[in-house]
Design a protein around this nucleic acid. Structure first.
Lengths: 197, 197
DNA sequence: CTGTATTTTCAGGAAATTCTGAAAATTGGA
DNA sequence: TCCAATTTTCAGAATTTCCTGAAAATACAG
């Protein structure tokens, strides 16, 4: 592996992690190299840095592109294709989450929905369906939360994440204001700007 | 596969999904069977239902136990061990998240921290470190949010998830109250019950 | 067009993983 | 303690996934 030590350590770790997810080691390594690179790299650069075959690089890049994880750049006076990862790391995470949802969650939801439509033949099947229904509801809750949060601009998202569970305290505050509404006209007017309930 | 049709379809799908995560097909199938089962099952039950070898079941159960995903039950007058998944599906998700964090996120954070301590030899390494720093910060933000949320009781969690990004509107409300503080003593007092800032 | 640079495809070999049966270890009752 | 039931281990077979080199396809400059 032909990389400076810090990058190499990161690339090795990332490859290892990638293989714990569905992604294979090499694909993870390719991504890691692009992620830390100062400039867009072409396939040959990756061959050189990772010491793997040209065809392997080609397949890896194709895989990463199918995940929407790469940006393509052309370089003046060079016929080869160059690749980078998006600069904005929040955008990367959003893409990753979207793709995983599309590949894992959506098909699962559709299987669950289909199985919940069927008529159970036995008590055993009735029980199975009840379990599947619980799972379905939970996944729906999580994905609708996700869809909501995915809409926020990065700045808002950070604000929300930073707050963590302290949000709950803000909710308490909201509840309290509602309780007070009527007895204190001003608070009621403000609370209503929440635009909901 | 010796299962009623609804369960079988679910088990097959779950095994398939499992193999997209690091988990292997059989382990996913074992979990799925236990998840929909009406009663605790022993290893032989799983052999029968999935049509795989006894030793394979044994290894699969061991793997699931290492993920903390099973409950062990003993049955009166039977020497064999019986297994179930926890009834509470929220608890299951919490466990899963904890384990994935422990296996994937924590080691990554520690590698990143270590690499950020090192002195970069070149500009290339300086740039790599800057990228790793961004990644480190993002992961820290996400995990601290996660740690916070993990503390909530299920009920609160559901409340929070149901609200989705509408939370932001509540935050706006909070901000507005702070803006008003001073000019309107009452609102300020209430806002302070948020216990922060 | 033609020729060269570049990328992609893909068959088959290499490597990794999963699975099995046999044997060893463990468990709990008598 | 001994024995039979049960679980675990593990070497190697079976399967799956990954990787490569060679060949085909594509892109583009002249």
């Amino acid at each position: 592996m032909n990389l400076p030590p810090i990058s190499e350590a990161f690339v090795l770790h990332f490859g290892e992690m990638g293989s714990r997810w569905g992604i294979n080691r090499t694909v993870g390594q390719i991504y890691a190299v692009l992620f830390v690179a100062e400039r867009p790299l072409c396939a040959d650069d990756l061959v050189e840095r990772l010491g793997i075959s040209r065809s392997n690089v080609s397949m890896g890049l194709k895989e990463l592109q199918s995940w929407n994880l790469l940006r393509q750049r052309s370089v003046q006076g060079d016929r080869r294709e160059f690749f980078t990862t998006p600069d904005d790391i929040y955008a990367i995470v959003r893409t990753l989450a979207d793709e995983r949802k599309k590949r894992e969650i959506d098909p699962t939801l559709s299987v669950l929905r289909e199985l919940l439509m069927q008529t159970p033949g036995t008590d055993e099947e009735k029980h199975a369906q009840a379990r599947l229904r619980e799972m379905h509801e939970l996944i729906e809750l999580l994905t609708s939360w996700y869809a909501d949060v995915q809409k926020l601009e990065t700045e808002r998202l950070i604000q929300l994440l930073s707050l963590g569970s302290k949000v709950v305290k803000v909710l308490d505050l909201k509840d309290r204001l509602f309780t007070l509404r009527g007895s204190r006209a001003g608070a009621g007017r403000i609370a209503n700007q929440n635009g909901k309930d």
